[in-house]
Measured scan of single mutants.
Amino acid sequence: HRQALGERLYPRVQAMQPAFASKITGMLLELSPAQLLLLLASEDSLRARVDEAMELII
């Protein structure tokens, strides 16, 4: 289940942060499945989480 969510998330994360897409997707997969579904449904929520992840990385 998580694998399938990751496969759906990755291209969207890659479009926002290509250099760190794998790392960010891995970080996002730590969230609950319900939270992941919310990110897939909301571009704004996904962008906010990706921005948060980038702050942790750099």
Rank of each mutant, 00 (worst) to 15 (best):
V13K: 02
F20H: 10
A21M: 01
L37C: 06
G6W: 15
R12N: 04
Q14M: 11
R2Y: 07
L56P: 01
L9A: 02
R2K: 15
E7H: 10
E43S: 08
L39N: 01
S42V: 05
E7D: 08
A53M: 11
L40P: 00
Q14E: 13
L56T: 10
I58K: 10
R12M: 15
L38H: 08
T25G: 02
P33T: 11
I58C: 06
I24F: 01
A19E: 15
A53K: 04
S42N: 14
E30D: 10
A19Y: 13
I57T: 02
Q35M: 12
K23Y: 09
Q35G: 04
Q14H: 12
Q3D: 15
S32W: 06
L40W: 04
R2S: 12
Q17P: 01
P33N: 14
L40I: 07
I24D: 00
I57R: 03
E7C: 13
D51Q: 12
R47Y: 04
D44C: 08
V13A: 02
L28C: 01
L39S: 03
D51L: 13
P18H: 06
M54R: 06
A19K: 12
L29E: 02
P18W: 06
E43P: 12
T25F: 12
M16R: 04
R8F: 14
R47F: 04
A53P: 01
A48N: 09
A15N: 08
A53I: 14
Q35W: 05
D51C: 06
M54D: 00
G6F: 15
I24A: 00
Q3F: 03
K23I: 14
A41Q: 11
Q17M: 12
T25P: 00
I57W: 04
L39E: 01
L46I: 04
V13H: 01
M16Q: 05
Q14R: 15
L29R: 02
L39C: 06
A15Y: 08
A41H: 11
R49K: 11
M54T: 05
I58L: 14
L56W: 12
D44E: 13
A34M: 10
M16L: 13
V50L: 03
R12G: 04
H1R: 10
A21H: 02
R8D: 06
M16N: 02
R47K: 09
E7Q: 13
A15K: 10
E43T: 09
R2D: 13
M16V: 07
L5F: 14
A53G: 02
H1W: 04
L37V: 08
T25I: 12
H1N: 13
M16D: 01
M54A: 07
Q3P: 07
P11N: 15
G26V: 12
R49F: 13
A48M: 12
Q14W: 12
T25S: 04
Q35N: 08
P33R: 12
R49N: 04
E43Y: 11
I24E: 00
L36F: 03
P33M: 15
R47V: 05
G6D: 05
E52I: 06
P33S: 14
A53V: 11
H1K: 08
R47N: 03
